[in-house]
């Protein structure tokens, strides 16, 4: 344990460089650069609002903010896990030639996507102002779901990055699963109806929904569901522990498969 902390400190510069690299390269050679992390969720929000709001007759004024919250958190989860999953094979050249702690790659992938995600949260400010959703002190509670989403993405990312080394098909399978997860996380529909039906468990036991729900409560200053918060925190810690365990157990075999 002491040794691991020492190695981590020795390589903290490296992880910093990897995170900077991820952020820098994501938008390199595009004209608008990092502004895209604001425009993109904004555009998706408009599309979803038109489709689910106007066409399906959802007239709630604050609906775009509702969508935006869900969409931002979900895309953190999906881009973070995807990029962690590919991190080992895309850094194969380096892993074959020099020693670096291998968990640096999934960790930095999740972290740089998290940085971009935090930046993209800025877009909530103008949208909320325009739609007259004013924050109260409750907004501070948003820090909890923001921590939770990081833990969840990291845990799932570690598991995926381990098994994607041995089974390349995981990449395709995961993109299908992500679609499923998107539909069961109440991103563009109101969860109330589903929560009252017999399928409520789908949402209640879905840690990503719990996170999104907590975040929305903080933004809209509605009642904060502590049950959801603690459930997802517990879930995420367990997933992260599993992720660390499987990664550690298999990391020495990576080199033979990449």
């Amino acid at each position: 344990m002491k040794n691991q902390i020492k190695t981590f400190l020795r390589y903290r510069e490296f992880i910093k460089e990897l995170v900077i690299k991820g952020v820098k390269l994501k938008y390199r050679r595009s004209y608008l650069g990092v502004v895209w992390s604001l425009i993109e969720p904004l555009l998706t929000m408009i599309v979803l609002t038109v489709v689910f709001g106007t066409l399906l007759g959802n007239t709630d004024r604050t609906y775009p903010v509702f969508i935006l919250c869900g969409r931002l958190l979900f895309s953190m989860f999906s881009t973070g896990t995807n990029s962690a999953m590919r991190s080992i094979s895309s850094n194969a050249a380096m892993l074959k030639k020099v020693y670096v702690p291998k968990y640096m790659f999934p960790l930095s992938s999740v972290l740089f996507n998290y940085v971009i995600f935090l930046l993209s949260l800025i877009v909530l400010i103008p949208v909320s102002i325009v739609l007259k959703v004013y924050p109260t002190w409750n907004l501070l509670l948003a820090l909890l779901p923001l921590l939770n989403i990081l833990l969840l993405t990291l845990g799932v990312g570690l598991i995926l990055s381990t098994y994607a080394v041995f089974f390349r098909d995981l990449e395709y399978l995961w993109s299908v699963l992500l679609t499923l997860i998107m539909y069961i996380s109440a991103i563009f529909y109101q969860p109330t109806k589903l929560l009252e039906s017999k399928y409520a468990a789908i949402l209640q036991y879905n840690p990503l929904f719990c996170i999104i729900d907590n975040f929305r409560s903080a933004v809209f200053s509605s009642e904060f569901n502590w049950g959801n918060m603690f459930y997802s925190l517990g879930f995420n810690v367990v997933i992260l522990a599993i992720g660390l365990y499987v990664f550690r157990r298999n990391q020495d075999k990576f080199i033979l498969h990449i």
Binding site: R10, Y11, E13, F14, K16, E17, K21, M94, V98, V100
Partner: peptide, 12 residues
């Protein structure tokens, strides 16, 4: 230079 240096464990 900074990326490769950090791989080798050098400080910025």
């Amino acid at each position: 230079i900074f990326l490769y240096g950090s791989v080798m464990g050098m400080k910025r």
